[in-house]
């Protein structure tokens, strides 16, 4: 029996889903809504987020919050297309979905290093 390598994709998918479920609403609240609704001073909020991005741990956290949900989404789209019978050849679709998630994650990591 040939072992499936799906566990790699599924682990990233699962991690992204968990992260989104736990931190997603909080992230939207703190980065998009609170600065405008509650903080009263958008510039101070902007500076605070800037400080978070300047710290190595902050970079890791933000990268995790971008990269893992990307893998989660594209994994679901890849299998969703299969379920909808919109199946293109396997390898190009894998390259497009998982390669796309890898590429976008790498660009995010590069951008985070430059901040």
């Amino acid at each position: 029996m040939r072992r499936s390598h799906e566990p790699i994709a599924w682990s990233l998918f699962g991690a992204g889903g968990m992260l989104l479920a736990f931190f997603g609403p909080g992230l939207v609240l703190t980065t998009a809504l609170l600065p405008w609704l509650a903080a009263g001073d958008p510039q101070a909020a902007h500076a605070a987020i800037g400080a978070l991005l300047a710290h190595p741990l902050g970079k890791v956290l933000v990268l995790a919050c971008i990269a893992l949900p990307l893998f989660h989404t594209l994994h679901r789209i890849y299998h969703g297309l299969h379920d909808l019978h919109l199946q293109a050849p396997r390898l190009p679709m894998q390259l497009l979905c998982y390669g796309g998630a890898t590429l976008l994650s790498a660009i995010s990591a590069w951008w985070l290093l430059l901040v």
Binding site: M1, R3, E6, P7, W10, H79, H82
Partner: peptide
């Protein structure tokens, strides 16, 4: 486990 691990095992399920 070898059957669960296979392509035709749990990983075919979406």
């Amino acid at each position: 486990m070898q059957w669960l691990n296979a392509d035709v095992g749990v990983w075919s399920c979406t």
